[in-house]
Design a protein around this nucleic acid. Structure first.
Lengths: 221, 221
DNA sequence: TCAACAATGTACGAAATGGTACGTTCAGTC
DNA sequence: GACTGAACGTACCATTTCGTACATTGTTGA
């Protein structure tokens, strides 16, 4: 029975319940991201997400209608975050060689630093991309990535430091593949070949190899 | 009440129940492979596996103790199958360039033709490779892969058609990454970039690019 | 000030799900 | 042919898990 201090005026110390929809929603989404990325759509438990949230299970169903919708929002939020980070990359003022090399290293490091995102994409692929297909948001977000590469690549071809005839989309595919695999298959690869792939020195080596590989692939002759 | 014909002698037409342990076990494993690779460890349902089997749920628990053990056996069987197919590859009598190129194409095609295996590895990575770690069988199976590559690579270096200083294990990593990603991320990549990656002509293009990329990576200078 | 709607807590329900108890049939041996 | 252990079927149980009904509290605008 803590007396509510001066009923409605200041956002004072303790109130019985402070409504804060946006924060609750964000909190749920953050917890859901961890849970889904860790255990997958079917492995994650709504009750467990609820427990780890400041809110209650009721709130999950209040803001997101059901488990699958929550998962979809999680996926969308993850893609949005990625695009925001990518947008910071400014390659237009760099020479093509330098720009491409930086893009590759950025992608590699970015994936390595965001395993949650990678895992969500893995999980989404296990589900045949069925949720991603429902999301117009994600579709629209990803147009720009290819544009950046197209720009860099065509500049490079003009200047003669890249060979002709490559498709920017396929180039993006190659860069993605190497950067993605580094995170997605780290556990099995490390265990099978008894090689601590996550160790900083090995990560550095892989980053160099991946960059080197792409650069060798695009250079003339 | 079909009268059992001449009680015990010939393996005649219809009997009430024909005990066939090995076949039942194999059947369960085959169904489990499909279910686990399709829906993951937590997504697959024992009841559903049982339904799709000629046997009953009781038999699953009879031969495999619980869900996780069944999953582990599924994983082991998948790895075994892969190694058997790889063993058919005979590269020792080929020139290094030809041998490496063939190895890359083989890996790429093999992965493409065995999405179940790829998906199981994805799922295993979602579980941090925790089951693979329990299996001495899988650990032992995978030693040979690197040996083959080491052989080809060192021959190539001697003959001067490969550059020095590369680590066969890292080379294997690169080949795996490109071949694996082609299957594992097909759904999200196709959907995001509105590109039918699974189409034969695109698969052919990717196979060529991947091979090309590896060959350019190892060649001298 | 007070109605009206938004936000939240509590308790519960129904179905799904992993696993088991218990009984029956098969197949080889003495 | 009786006996024994392996192979198998049926029915069931205990828990988990998604989701909801219902009551309550906060907030905002007229």
């Amino acid at each position: 029975m803590t007396a509510p201090s001066t009923k409605a005026s200041p956002p004072a110390a303790r109130r019985r319940r402070k409504n804060n929809p946006e924060s609750v929603r964000a909190d749920i989404l953050a917890v859901a991201t961890r849970e889904f990325s860790e255990k997958g759509l079917s492995g994650a438990r709504i009750d467990e997400i609820a427990e780890k949230t400041r809110a209650s299970k009721r709130m999950i169903y209040y803001y997101f209608n059901d488990k699958e919708t929550l998962y979809l929002h999680t996926l969308e939020a993850a893609y949005q975050k990625v695009r925001l980070q990518e947008a910071e990359l400014d390659l237009d003022h760099l020479a093509p060689l330098e720009a491409l090399s930086r893009l590759v290293r950025f992608t590699f490091c970015h994936h390595a630093k965001n395993p949650d995102f990678i895992r969500l994409v893995m999980i989404e692929n296990i589900h045949h991309g069925r949720f991603l297909a429902q999301s117009e948001l994600i579709q629209s977000l990803n147009a720009g990535v290819i544009d950046v590469l197209t720009n860099v690549y065509s500049r490079g071809v003009e200047e003669g430091c890249f060979r002709e005839g490559l498709d920017p989309r396929e180039l993006h595919w190659l860069i993605s593949a190497l950067s993605f695999f580094n995170v997605s298959n780290q556990h099995t690869f490390s265990r099978i070949f008894d090689w601590h792939q996550a160790a900083p020195e090995n990560q550095q080596k892989l980053e160099d190899h991946v960059t080197d590989m792409v650069m060798r692939y695009v250079r003339p002759n």
